[in-house]
Nucleic acid binder design. Sequence first.
DNA 1: CAGTATCCAGGGGGATACTG
DNA 2: CAGTATCCCCCTGGATACTG
Lengths: 126, 126
Amino acid sequence: MKDDIFDFCRNMSDEQDARARQMLERAAAKWPLRVLHVLSEADGPLRFSRVLERVEDISQKVLTQTLRTLESDGLVIRTLYPQVPPRVEYELTPLGRELLTQVVSLWRWIVIHLNEFDTSKSAARN
Amino acid sequence: MKDDIFDFCRNMSDEQDARARQMLERAAAKWPLRVLHVLSEADGPLRFSRVLERVEDISQKVLTQTLRTLESDGLVIRTLYPQVPPRVEYELTPLGRELLTQVVSLWRWIVIHLNEFDTSKSAARN
DNA sequence: CAGTATCCAGGGGGATACTG
DNA sequence: CAGTATCCCCCTGGATACTG
């Protein structure tokens, strides 16, 4: 028998597997990753507008969606200050910060090996 | 100044950054990941049909696309034996195997922390 | 300010049929 | 066997307008 690098998943239900896969995809996706990054760079909580400014080219709708998802995944805290006009602040949870750290290590590996991808004899372009 | 966990990207061009991001998204995406996994489990090269069988619910078209992308990214080797009927075999490159290893470590982290996502006070407790 | 609501265009992926 | 070629649907995400 070959050893399976996914062996530690043996005891997982299909639901758990799907959930883990979902988290992996979300964490690696464009907007969530950039939002997490922006939040991690900030010294403290950021208002919605600040995030909107700092995540280049994101639309308001998508930012809202992204933040909602991150919040429900426990990666981001949303704090509403009931004022007029309202003030809403976002910040990373410890879990969000940890996850970002994990993704960054994968990111770092990719960056280091960047020149090994596609440059080979295959049909790299496009 | 805050320390930026992406500091090691400072010297990267926009193109390199985009390429790295693309590789990250691809590596975490559903089909590429499952194809890499199937290939890593096999003892040797796998024929197209075998991969099609083992990657559950993937369509032929998407499998072809996925394999082509993986090949052009240098993660998979495609070997054509000019016979009738043709025989085509796929196997991981060392780079592909390494990348999968990296993704798996992120995957493992996610699995370990699975119960910390969303179960918290945000969604579950109404 | 921080959203929600609505409309709309483009791409990804499924199903099917055909071929060297 | 290992693909291509088509058609089609759905979903994502952009743009815009409106509101508590």
